[in-house]
Design a protein around this nucleic acid. Structure first.
Lengths: 161, 161
DNA sequence: GCCACCTTACTCGGATAAGGACTGTCCGAGTCGCTAAGG
DNA sequence: CCTTAGCGACTCGGACAGTCCTTATCCGAGTAAGGTGGC
């Protein structure tokens, strides 16, 4: 089990976008992070489809912006935008197959194994839903002693002009 | 992101093994669950490598048994045996790449994004580690009003004899 | 001088190949019980 | 009748293809600004 690399990229992009009032083009985000521009574009499109970001097409000052304040965007929303909102564990109901299949009447609730997996998954989702992009940005600020984002904004303004 | 189907199989097999004092061959487990015998064998071998099960080779009464009481085997141990114990989220340290790389001196700790992901993952692992195979077996018993395991043991004895 | 049109440059968007992991399979290695021959 | 060597059947174990999804890429669709020609 592994999480798509695009999730990491998308999260970093959301943090960057939270620091820029102006739209930022996909190519600029890719250049800033040193990743594939075309593949990053795919992730940004997914974010837009999920309503996390919005895009301004055509027009020189175009690019991507967040649709709402960074404090209103959770890490979980970004992950589900990229990776899908389907469950990590998928019960195939093998209890209803094989030599001694369980009668459907006893299968109105998920099997005990699936319940345990779903419980753990809920704990995972809760933790991710409780963390917002704004909180991560605040952590980055304290990690870098406030140096990261001013430099970022300066770079964005320089390349944008 | 998705969890291997082998994880579900392995969990079901552990529950079955917890109900059988005698070794159960891989082919019998596959027949009981209605899954591919050869692929299930692969999962059982992984469980043995991880020390969750032990195998008795040769000799007609051979097969797999649990290495310890089902209450001492957590769901997490089974998952890690099949799927590996590597982290779901893998930080590629893109903060140190691109246009404005972070100096390594500020990267002694994981970046804020990775920390958030690891926190959520710890919550997931904690929930899985807190659930044992014995608890799942107890849930199955109550789900089926105590009918499932007697029938299972009878079937195992019948086909084994 | 003013307006409308066209060209242009820039941006996103979806459809299209390559690589790797999960899925599924096969045959060889190992071990104990049974059989049969010899003492 | 007892012992022992050989045979056989059954089991696990690791090495080998097929298929789906992730990764990576390309070209087309859309938009607004700026220039140009006409009125």
């Amino acid at each position: 089990m592994k999480l798509s690399a695009g999730v990491e990229w998308a999260l970093h992009c959301c943090v960057v976008l939270s620091q820029s009032p102006d739209p930022v083009p996909a190519a600029r985000l890719a250049e800033y992070h040193g990743v594939s521009p075309t593949y990053l574009a795919k992730q940004l499109q997914a974010l837009t489809r999920a309503g996390v970001t919005q895009s301004i097409q055509g027009h020189v000052g175009g690019g991507y912006t967040l649709t709402r304040d960074a404090s209103e965007i959770s890490v979980l929303q970004v992950i589900e935008a990229i990776d899908g909102d389907q469950s990590v564990f998928r019960c195939t109901e093998i209890r209803q197959q094989g030599a001694i299949p369980a009668p459907p009447s006893t299968c109105v609730t998920p099997c005990a194994i699936a319940r345990a997996m779903y419980r753990a998954e809920d704990a995972w989702r809760d933790a991710l839903a409780a963390t917002s992009i704004a909180e991560i940005a605040a952590d980055v600020t304290s990690d870098t002693h406030g140096t990261a984002f001013p430099r970022l904004r300066k770079w964005l303004a320089a390349t944008g002009a």
